[in-house]
Structures are given as structure tokens and as C-alpha cells.
Design a protein around this nucleic acid. Structure first.
Length: 226
DNA sequence: ACGGTAGAACACTAGTACTG
DNA sequence: CAGTACTAGTGTTCTACCGT
């Protein structure tokens, strides 16, 4: 939040004044999964200059979106976490992420895909109405990152790491987005080698039903718009 | 009223140094 | 080591002005 305003008595304008600066929402995104230290944020946002991160943290703190907390440890580490007000951004961020995902093309050479992004992408695309009555655990590999998603009757819990008793282990060879966007069926993904699984292939079909990206908008359909 | 342009202001970056 | 602050350079946006 800088000193500048849009000069409009409008909630959207106010929201943009609070979290609309470059990098601000990505800081909020990375704090949705829990408190982080300054250096954690530098790792999840490798392209943000230190001075900008410092400025954004101060601005978001002043805006009441995040708070600083000193951990009761010997090193007195400082962590940043969302306030109650900041936490109210969670459903908005998930909706925004899903909206943006529709226009995602292929990842760029220097694009980063962090563990947090992997976890959030599963929350973003999850459709509870398609998971009613389902009790299944997936382990998903993204390169050397592994997350697991536990679906329990319309509820979802995603966490870092492998899950030894996962019902299905999914290993995409590239981006999993074409399958989630319906650009290829789970069967096609398996047959083409785009996705490899350990477990019943039927569970991959269920996965593609429960985790879904709506079709790309017509203007950018089929384009690698980034 | 509209479009183009120049200068000012602002935002961002990379690098470095400083503090506790 | 974690976090902050500063600087110089670059790019972007805003504003005022001018001509059509």
C-alpha cells in the first residue's frame, strides 16, 4: 500500500490500494499456507528484490493484512503471518487463481513453480461437489517436489511430502494442466505418457473430475498466453 | 474533443553495505 | 544470519501542453 490512492469511494479500489501493488498479492498467497520468515519468502519469490519485499511487508503490515511475530526461540526469529483480515483473502485468492489458470499457457524457461504453488493449485482446482462420498489419497509429483492430497467426502487436505499408503501416485512428465483443463482425457494422458501412475487408472479419472480448470476464454484458447 | 508528445514523478531492479 | 536501507540506472505511468 503506497501513499497513492485511486480517489474512488469503492471497495474494489480500496482493495487494490491495500494489496494491488506489484508483488503484494504473491506475498499474501505465500502466507496463506502458514507463517513464513523473510528468507522463506525470498525463496518462494526468488525474483523479488530484497528492498521491495521489505517494503511490501511493511505496507501489508500497515494495512492490517499481515502481522510480524517474534518466535519464542533462542534466535528470536521473526515470521510474517496473515491477520484475520488477511485470511479473509483466502477464498478470493483461490477464485483468482482459478480464473488466472484458465489463461495459463506453457511455463516459461525461467518460470518457477514452488511447493506452495503446487499445493495451492490443488486447492484452487478442487471441486467439492465432485468429491462427495469419495475417500481417496493422491500423491502427486512435480519434478522433485511431492505433495499429497487427501479427499474425504468433499473435503480436501493438501500437504507437502509423499504419502506411503496413497491410493494413486501421479507423476506428470510435464504440466498436468492439459488434463485438468480437459484438453486431454486421463486415458489419453496415460496412453501418451504425459502422466504416469502407480495404482488404479480409474482413480486418475476421478482425480481429473475432482480437480478441474475451466476452459480457457475464447480469445486465448489454444494460445500460449502467459 | 481527441491524439501526440515531452517532462516529471514514480516504481522497480541490481548491487552493496549496514545493523543487531 | 536475517532484515533493512541506500544508490544509480532503467522503465513505466501520469500530467500538462499543444496542434488538429
Amino acid at each position: 500500500m503506497t501513499g497513492r490512492t485511486y480517489g474512488q469511494f469503492c471497495g474494489v479500489a480500496r482493495a487494490l490500494e491495500l494489496v494491488g501493488e506489484r508483488w503484494s498479492l504473491l506475498v499474501v498467497r505465500d502466507l496463506l499456507l502458514g507463517p513464513k520468515r523473510y528468507t522463506d519468502l525470498r525463496q518462494t519469490l526468488p525474483k523479488i528484490p530484497a528492498s521491495i519485499l521489505s517494503a511490501r511487508l511493511n505496507e501489508l503490515e500497515q494495512a492490517g493484512v499481515i502481522r510480524r511475530r517474534v518466535l519464542p526461540q533462542l534466535d528470536a526469529a521473526v515470521v510474517y503471518e496473515l491477520t484475520e483480515y488477511g485470511n479473509e483473502l483466502e477464498p478470493i485468492m483461490l477464485q483468482l487463481g482459478l480464473w488466472g489458470a484458465r489463461s495459463l499457457g506453457e511455463p516459461g524457461m525461467d518460470d518457477v513453480f514452488t511447493l506452495d504453488s503446487a499445493i495451492l493449485s490443488l486447492y484452487t482446482t478442487f471441486r467439492p461437489e465432485y468429491a462427495a462420498g469419495a475417500h481417496v489419497t493422491y500423491e502427486v509429483h512435480y519434478g522433485n517436489m511431492v505433495v499429497h492430497a487427501m479427499v474425504d467426502d468433499g473435503m480436501l487436505k493438501v500437504a507437502e511430502g509423499a504419502y506411503p499408503d496413497a491410493d494413486l501416485v501421479i507423476v506428470p512428465m510435464g504440466s498436468i494442466k492439459p488434463m485438468l483443463a480437459g484438453e486431454m482425457t486421463p486415458r489419453q494422458a496415460l496412453d501418451s505418457g504425459a502422466v504416469r501412475v502407480t495404482g488404479s487408472p480409474e482413480l486418475l479419472t476421478r482425480f481429473a473430475e475432482m480437480f478441474r480448470i475451466p476452459p480457457a476464454p475464447a480469445r486465448v484458447a489454444g494460445l500460449a498466453v502467459r
